[in-house]
C-alpha cells in the first residue's frame, strides 16, 4: 500500500519532468550548434567558436529574411489585434441579427488547416492578379491571427464584471470614459496576451507565407530553403537569441510580479 502511494506521488513529477526535457532537447541542440565552427554546413560538430555569435548576419540574406519576418509579424499583429479586439467586444457585448453567423465566420479560420488557408489565399491573389510579396503575407497572417485574438480577448470580456461598468456610470463617467478608464484596462492583459500570441505565430509561420510570398523571403522560409543545403550556424544563433530574449523577458516579468505579490501578501 505504502509503496503504491509513493509511486503515485512520484509518477507525475518524474513523467512531467521527462516531458519538459523532451521539450527542451531540440532547443538545447540549436543552442549548442550555434557555437559550431561549421563553415558551410552545420550538420556535424566541427569545433567550438564564438564567431557565429559575433557575426549573426554572416550568412548571406539571413538578416534580410529576419528583418522581413519581424516587420511582417509587427504589422500583422497590430492589425489583427485591433480588428480582433473590436470583434470580440462587439460579439460579446452587443446583440444584433446574424450574430450566430458572425460567430461561425470568425471561428472558421481556426478550423482551417494552414495549407488550406494558404492555398485559398493564393487562389484569391492569383484571381485578383495581385503581386505576391510583403503585403500578401501580412494580409494572410492577419487572417489567421485574428481568430486567435478574438477567442483570447473574448474569454476575457465574458469574465468581466459588468457591475464595474455600472459603477463607473453611477460615478458620472460617460460611456466613452467608462470604456477607456474601466473596461479597456481590465481587458488589457488579454489583449496583450493575444498580441504576443499573434506575433509569435506570425513570426514562426512557414506554410502560409510559403504560399503567399512569391520570391519574398521570410526567416522560416530562409531556413526551410537552406535546410536542403545545410542550415548556416547563424540561423542557430538567431533562433537561440530570440529564445533567450523571450526567456529573459518572461522570467523577468514573472519574477517581478511574483515579488510584488509576495510584498503585497507580506503587508
Amino acid at each position: 500500500m505504502r509503496f503504491k502511494q509513493r509511486i503515485g506521488r512520484w509518477l507525475v513529477p518524474v513523467l512531467g519532468g521527462l516531458a519538459f526535457v523532451y521539450l527542451l532537447v531540440p532547443i538545447a541542440y540549436i543552442f549548442v550548434y550555434s557555437f559550431n565552427d561549421a563553415g558551410r554546413t552545420n550538420l556535424t560538430w566541427q569545433g567550438f567558436t564564438f564567431s557565429n555569435w559575433l557575426n549573426p548576419c554572416g550568412a548571406p540574406n539571413i538578416c534580410d529574411a529576419l528583418g522581413n519576418s519581424l516587420s511582417i509579424a509587427f504589422v500583422a499583429t497590430i492589425i489583427a489585434t485591433v480588428l480582433g479586439t473590436a470583434i470580440a467586444l462587439g460579439l460579446a457585448r452587443y446583440k444584433f441579427r446574424f450574430r450566430k453567423l458572425a460567430d461561425i465566420l470568425i471561428i472558421l479560420p481556426l478550423a482551417t488547416p494552414e495549407v488550406v488557408l494558404g492555398a485559398s489565399l493564393l487562389a484569391q491573389f492569383l484571381n485578383l492578379g495581385w503581386e505576391l510579396g510583403y503585403w500578401t503575407v501580412v494580409i494572410s497572417h492577419v487572417t489567421f491571427c485574428m481568430a486567435f485574438v478574438v477567442v483570447t480577448v473574448r474569454a476575457r470580456v465574458s469574465a468581466l464584471d459588468g457591475r464595474l461598468e455600472e459603477a463607473a456610470g453611477d460615478l458620472y463617467a460617460s460611456p466613452r470614459t467608462t470604456f477607456w478608464k474601466v473596461t479597456f484596462p481590465l481587458l488589457l492583459p488579454g489583449v496583450v496576451a493575444a498580441a504576443l500570441l499573434s506575433f509569435a505565430m506570425s513570426f514562426d509561420d512557414f506554410i502560409i507565407a510559403n504560399f503567399n510570398s512569391g520570391t519574398f523571403d521570410t526567416f522560416p522560409k530562409f531556413i526551410y530553403v537552406a535546410a536542403t543545403r545545410g542550415i548556416p550556424a547563424q540561423a542557430n544563433v538567431i533562433g537561440s537569441g530570440i529564445f533567450l530574449i523571450a526567456l529573459v523577458i518572461v522570467v523577468t516579468g514573472t519574477v517581478l510580479s511574483y515579488r510584488r505579490q509576495k510584498a503585497l501578501a507580506a503587508r
Partner: peptide, 30 residues
C-alpha cells in the same frame, strides 16, 4: 511553488519562440 511553476510555464511556452522549422531540423539531426 509559485516560482518553479512560473519557470516551467516559461519552458512550456518557449518552443513558440524558437523557429518551428529550425526545431524540426534539429530533430532531424538528433
Amino acid at each position: 511553488h509559485k516560482l518553479l511553476a512560473a519557470i516551467l510555464l516559461v519552458i512550456l511556452i518557449a518552443p513558440f519562440f524558437s523557429s518551428f522549422v529550425l526545431r524540426t531540423q534539429a530533430w532531424k539531426q538528433i
